[in-house]
Nucleic acid binder design. Structure first.
Length: 148
DNA sequence: GCCAACGTTGGC
DNA sequence: GCCAACGTTGGC
C-alpha cells in the first residue's frame, strides 16, 4: 500500500497503531481491498513521492473490506456523490502497525533485485496505490537487511 | 518543476 | 463504442 509520508507515514501508523485506509478512488485498488484482502494478511507500507522513496515498513489487515464512509461526507476531500450508504462504491480496510524498517528500502534497490522484476511497484508508470505482492516477491523483500 | 503514464470523462 | 482531452500520480 502506497502512502505519501507527508500525508501519512509509517511513523504515523506506528503512533496510531491502526488506521482505516480511506480515500482510495480507483476501481482496481478498491477491488483488492474489497475482495482480496483478509484479516491477518500482511502489507508492505510504501512511501511514495518523497525521498527516500521505497518500502518503509510492514502492517497487517485487522478488518477486511468495508464501505469507505468518507465518500458520503460532502465536506470530505474524497466525497463522491455516486456512493451511497445503501449502495457504497468505495471500500477500505483497517490495518495495524507491525514493523518499521530501520531505514527505507529504496525503490532503486527493489529495481536491482532480479526476484522483483515483475513486482508492480518497480514497473514504469505504476500508479496503483494498492497492489498484490507475490509470495516469491515477499520472500525476497524480507531478505533485505533494513528489516533488522 | 517536468513530464510520461495512466484512468476517467464526455462529445460524437 | 471510440477516442481526444483532461486531471492525477509519482519517479526523476
Amino acid at each position: 500500500m502506497k502512502s505519501e509520508p507527508n500525508v501519512f507515514s509509517i511513523d504515523d501508523l506506528k503512533a496510531s497503531k491502526t488506521t482505516y485506509w480511506s480515500g482510495v478512488r480507483n476501481y482496481q485498488a478498491r477491488n483488492f481491498m474489497r475482495d482480496r484482502m483478509k484479516v491477518g494478511d500482511r502489507i508492505l507500507f510504501y512511501h511514495s513521492n518523497v525521498e527516500p522513496i521505497g518500502i518503509a515498513g510492514m502492517a497487517e489487515v485487522v478488518k477486511a473490506g468495508y464501505p469507505d464512509f468518507t465518500a458520503w461526507d460532502p465536506k470530505d476531500k474524497y466525497y463522491d456523490p455516486a456512493s451511497l450508504p445503501s449502495k457504497p462504491v468505495w471500500y477500505m480496510v483497517d490495518i495495524q502497525f507491525m514493523k518499521r524498517c530501520r531505514s527505507v528500502i529504496p525503490l532503486k534497490r527493489l529495481k536491482e533485485n532480479p526476484a522483483l522484476k515483475k513486482m508492480g511497484v518497480v514497473q514504469k508508470g505504476s500508479r496503483l496505490s494498492v497492489q498484490p505482492v507475490a509470495p516469491e516477491e515477499w520472500k525476497a523483500i524480507l531478505k533485505f537487511p533494513e528489516w533488522d
